[in-house]
Structure formats: C-alpha cells, structure tokens
Amino acid sequence: MTEGNFVDYVKIHAESGNGGKGSAHLHREKYIVKGGPDGGDGGRGGHVIVRGNENLWTLVGFKFKKHFKAGHGEHGSKQRSTGADGKDVYLEVPLGTVVKDPDSGKSLFEITEHDEEKILVEGGMGGRGNWHFKSSTNQTPRYAQPGIKGQEIDVILELKVLADVGLVGFPNAGKSTLLSVITSAKPKIADYEFTTLKPNLGIVKYRDFQSFVMADIPGIIEGAAEGKGLGHYFLRHIERNATLLFLIPADSDDIAREYQILLDELRRYNPELIDKDRLVAISKSDMLDEELMGEMRTELEKDLQDVPFMFISSVAQQGIVELKDRLWAMLNN
C-alpha cells in the first residue's frame, strides 16, 4: 500500500554474478620452455544481500528501481592468480521487512536488527584453474573449470511497521487526532472515512527523557481479515506492535459491540494478535457529562469484563497524561 513516500510492499528482481573461469595457463619463462600448469581460479560472482538499516522507515528506495544485478567474478590468470570476486549488491531495508516468495507467499526470511545481513541470491562459484588437475599421470592438464552461472529470483519485500503501541479502530474514530496530540507527528486529519491510507508513526515523549513509538494504523472495517476495504495492507502492521490501543468514539451506538468486531477481525487475521496487551480508550469523551460517563462506565465494566478501559479527549486534552502512564506501565510490565 503506498501513499506519497510511504511504501510498504514492492516486488523486485535480483540477479547474482557469474563465477569467473579458471585459467588453463602453462608456466613459461626464458629458460623454462615446458613448465607445469599454473592457472589460477576464477573469482566468485557477486551476491545480492539484504541488509537492515534502522534509519529507514519505508521501502521508498525500491519505488523506481526494482532490478538489481551483482558483478561477475573475474577469470583466473597465470602464476595461480585468483580472479577478483564480483561486486556484491546490498539492498538496504527498514527493520521489520519480510522477504517472501511471490508464487507461494512463503516467508523466506525477515530483517529485524540493524546491520543484519541475509544473502538473497548467492553468486556463482569461480572455476578451478588447471593446476588443481595436475597428477602423476596427467602432468600438463590443458583444461580448467568454467565458472558457475549466477542465479536470478523475483521476491516480494513486505514491511511490517515496528512500533510499541498500535492504534486500532474503525475509520474516523479519532486515531490520527490522538497521534497528533500525543506525539509530534502530523498525520492527515479530516472528517471522512479512510483519511489515513498509510501507517503514521510518532514518538511519545514520557518522563525522564524516556519515550515509546505509537503507530496510527488505517481504520478497520468488518471483513478486513478477508481483504475487504484496505484489508491485509494494514492488518500486517499490527503484528509487530507490543500493545494494542483500541480507540472507540463515545458517540458510538454500541461501544462493546464495536470492540468485539475489531477483536474478531484481528483474531480471524492472526489468532496470536489476541495474546497482546490491550487497552480500550473511549475517545471524544468531552461531549459526556459526569452522570452519563458514570452510567457508561458501569455498563462497560460488565460488557468488557477484564479488559481495561478509560475515557479520553484528544481535542480537550482530557486523560492524555493518564493514557501515557497506562501505556508505559503496560509496555514495561
């Protein structure tokens, strides 16, 4: 799913380099007319390597360049000189990038640490020079091995956003507004559904110069687990969040039912998401008076059972400090 410079899904083509030929050279000097074999080995073909970079946040570097080819190994030469290895090509990706087979959809590997390297396509081996084949019965072999050809592959790079807290809710629940208030992020905010078409990340500053990362995930609708609406394009980002903050507006017809629908979509997409810590925040609560809030609290304690909840208002700055405290405690429990 792409919008602007946020790219979290690309398909690329990668080719490794061919191995260099081994040399079939025979040693010759001024007074040595018939020297023995001294052909060197060919160099290894270049690898295509995926490397993690903590300074990158999207796959935008692959938006316009999607074909990558490593260098070929050089041929061996006389005096057993080995050819130079082909130049490796490095693909710098953000942490949380999963590399998948485009046909089967199977995950090949994932990058989660800075400077972590995985070889995507191995370069071809260099051929051995003729001096390897010298024997008592074959004193002057006049042949050497050719280099092994490189490989090529098509893969999908898929980014799963790494964040401590993921905001979950229906479209227009106030997630972007909360993110703009609680962090210094400037997400697009408007009064219509699907304003957010890409995850927005923000750093929440806490006490004593501590902080954590919050991600505003595009809104969920019923059927999202089957790909309806924005479907899988955003649900995968929730997989990497340590804590899930469910945001439901106070003017919702049925807060408990909305929560159950959201929870069910996550369960159907990936049952492991249900094991994450959860907190329900009732947004836009500045429109409630104390009496109505008390009645809602009594109902929610019964309907939500053991799930913690609280009332907040991003616009009126109500409950924001308490929300930070609650999230920090959950992340460090």
Rank of each mutant, 00 (worst) to 15 (best):
M1G: 11
N5Y: 10
F6D: 03
D8F: 11
A14S: 13
S16C: 12
N18R: 14
G20H: 08
G20I: 05
S23Q: 06
S23C: 14
S23H: 05
H25I: 12
L26T: 04
H27L: 07
R28S: 08
E29I: 11
K34L: 15
K34Y: 15
K34S: 14
P37S: 15
G39R: 02
G43H: 06
R44L: 10
H47M: 01
G52S: 01
N53E: 13
L56M: 09
W57C: 15
W57Q: 15
L59R: 12
F62V: 10
F64P: 02
F64G: 06
F68C: 04
K69Y: 08
H75Q: 11
S77D: 09
A84W: 06
D85V: 15
T97M: 05
K100R: 13
P102E: 10
S107R: 12
E113N: 08
E117T: 02
K118L: 02
K118P: 02
V121N: 06
E122N: 08
N130K: 00
K134M: 10
N138L: 15
Y143E: 09
G147L: 00
G147W: 01
G150V: 07
G150L: 04
Q151C: 14
E152T: 07
D154C: 15
I156E: 11
L159H: 08
K160W: 14
V165G: 09
G166E: 01
L167E: 00
G169C: 03
G174T: 10
L178I: 09
L178F: 03
V181A: 13
A185E: 00
K186R: 15
K188S: 09
A190S: 11
D191L: 10
D191H: 12
D191A: 11
T196K: 10
N200Q: 10
G202F: 00
Q210Y: 11
F212S: 12
A215L: 01
D216P: 08
I217G: 01
G219S: 02
I220A: 07
G223K: 00
G227I: 05
K228T: 04
K228R: 10
L230A: 13
G231T: 09
T243E: 01
L245R: 02
P249H: 07
A250W: 02
A250R: 04
R257W: 06
R257S: 11
L262F: 00
N270K: 09
P271L: 05
L273E: 01
I274K: 07
I274N: 08
A281C: 10
A281K: 04
A281I: 00
I282D: 07
M287A: 08
E290V: 08
E291G: 06
E291S: 10
E295K: 08
T298I: 14
E301D: 10
K302D: 05
Q305K: 14
Q305G: 07
P308R: 09
M310S: 05
S313W: 05
S314F: 08
V315C: 06
A316W: 03
G319P: 06
L323M: 03
L327E: 02
